Computed example of a mutant assay.
Amino acid sequence: MSFSFEIEPTINGESIAYFRIMRPEMRNAVNYDVMSGLEEFLDRIEDDPEISFAVISGEGNLAFCSGGDLSDFHGFQTAEDAWPMLSRGAKILYRIATLPMPTIALINGAAVGGGCELATACDYRLVASHAKAGFIQGTLAITSGWGGATLLFEKNSPHDQLLQLTSRASVHSADKLKELGWATEVYNGDADAALDQFLAPMLKVHRNVHRAYKSIATRKWQANNLREAMQEEARVCSVLWESDAHHEAVQRFLTKNK
């Protein structure tokens, strides 16, 4: 199984939903099976009023998520080939971003490419001190394709630092991510303990309060046509996907990593 999810009650009667990518041998890269798992997870929790928080993580300590699995996706040659996968990814991230309950990315390792987009879709990002993250899609001559850059600019500031975060196509340390405002907190040691410590004060507040504040954000995003903007980001990526520059960059990457 390439993913798992569960809903666990807390001692004070709240419930927390957990989704974990379980492909450590592939650095928790997203393939079609993980996409289906995320959709199933979202179907299960979207309308459940008892859930206080949703947590997304990756198996192991090396990677939260290394983005899209090129072994599944590198065969796309044209914009038309790439569009269904990119559009589907953007729809999934939009659903994560607009869940009625707050979401937490528990970043226990590298979050790069689409993995950085996935984490950006969440409301909070708890980043292990050894972890690194970055919008590295530019190294493959494409942009982010699942709406992650749209979410980044919608949620965070300042503009110039965010533009560097995307356009330099490099990875950044946990401390730098905290400085940029992308990381909510940087933790040392056990990820589950860090999550418990982060959630403890918020679990003292009724879930309806958290949901009410979340709805304020989502109303703003809906007014700004966030869904359409994320789909446009996917469309732009699909156009770049069919370029010779992208195909050559992917071939170099696959050759280097054989």
Rank of each mutant, 00 (worst) to 15 (best):
I96M: 08
S52Y: 12
G68V: 11
F76L: 11
G109Y: 00
S144R: 05
L106C: 00
N61H: 14
L38I: 03
A79F: 07
G113Y: 15
M101A: 06
D72C: 13
M85F: 15
L126C: 02
L99Q: 02
L106I: 02
A79V: 08
I136V: 15
L70Y: 12
E59A: 15
K91W: 04
A54F: 06
T143G: 01
I56M: 09
F53Y: 14
I92R: 01
H74R: 08
L70I: 15
D72H: 15
R125P: 08
D47H: 15
L106K: 00
E39A: 10
I45C: 08
E50C: 11
G115S: 04
L42S: 04
G58Y: 04
D47P: 07
F53V: 02
R88L: 09
I107T: 09
G89N: 03
I96W: 10
S66L: 05
S129N: 14
I96S: 07
F41A: 09
F76S: 02
D48V: 09
G115K: 07
S52D: 06
C122H: 00
E117R: 00
G67Y: 08
C116D: 04
P49Q: 08
A105Q: 07
T98N: 10
V34Y: 09
W83V: 10
G115C: 03
L99A: 01
S87D: 08
Q77M: 11
G75T: 01
K91H: 08
G60K: 00
P102E: 06
G75S: 06
D69F: 09
D81H: 05
G37W: 12
P102H: 06
C65K: 10
I56N: 04
A97V: 00
